[in-house]
């Protein structure tokens, strides 16, 4: 019998409450992560509506499977991973990730430095959302989530080379967008 038990953290209480099916605890978990997860879903979904659908489905999965959470990582990471997987499944179901005869051309990463502090969150999100879904997915997984191309290939059901190729193309498109934004900005400054 333990005389002294370690006080449970808020996260632990939250998890146990969700496992017990307490709606109040589920609401607390939602409130805690909903904003971050909405940002995640927006990065993967073509539209805001679909992002909300993904997030709804993702949270349902979280509540249904939270008893399987092994506590080997922060809860936020686990929830985020579920959201990413849900988005991947959602896009796959809509056949938005299929690739047809794409040549595997991998451009070298330029050493050019970027400073995105001048861009708002909406602008950056808009750039990512404007990418084709498969580019969007690969860019998110590689650049932001930190997966490597082999892992991305396994997740998306494509080859590692295709993942690299798609990432290279996505990166090029974003660079072009940023260049055009810079050009507009410079023109705007000069005209003033």
């Amino acid at each position: 019998m333990k005389l002294f038990t370690k006080p449970k953290s808020d996260e632990e209480k939250l998890i146990e409450g969700c496992i017990a099916g307490k709606r109040e605890m589920q609401r607390n978990l939602y409130d805690l992560y909903s904003k971050k997860m909405m940002a995640v879903c927006l990065r993967y979904a073509p539209t805001n509506f679909e992002a909300e659908d993904i997030m709804q489905e993702g949270f349902i999965k979280v509540f249904a499977n939270i008893q399987n959470f092994k506590r080997d990582c922060p809860l936020e990471f686990w929830v985020r991973r579920i959201m990413v997987n849900t988005a991947l499944k959602h896009l796959r179901q809509k056949s938005l990730l299929t690739v047809s005869h794409e040549t595997e051309e991998v451009a070298s990463i330029s050493s050019e430095t970027y400073n995105l502090t001048g861009y708002s969150m909406d602008e950056l999100m808009g750039m990512i959302q404007s990418l084709a879904p498969r580019y969007q997915m690969v860019f998110n997984l590689y650049a932001i989530e930190g997966y490597n191309h082999k892992e991305i290939g396994e997740m998306m059901g494509i080859s590692e080379g295709t993942s690299k190729s798609q990432y290279s193309r996505a990166r090029a498109i974003l660079q072009d967008m940023l260049a055009r934004q810079d050009h507009k900005f410079k023109e705007h400054v000069i005209s003033k």
């Binding site: 904003k35 940002a39 050493s111 970027y114 400073n115």
Partner: peptide, 28 residues
């Protein structure tokens, strides 16, 4: 990974966007 990736990551990793107000009621 170049500067572009790091910049996007730093800006997007902890980004927050408020969901639709009725989203919780749908989940509920």
């Amino acid at each position: 990974r170049g500067s572009l990736e790091e910049q996007f990551r730093s800006r997007m990793q902890d980004a927050e966007v408020s969901p639709a107000p009725d989203l919780w009621s749908r989940i509920d």
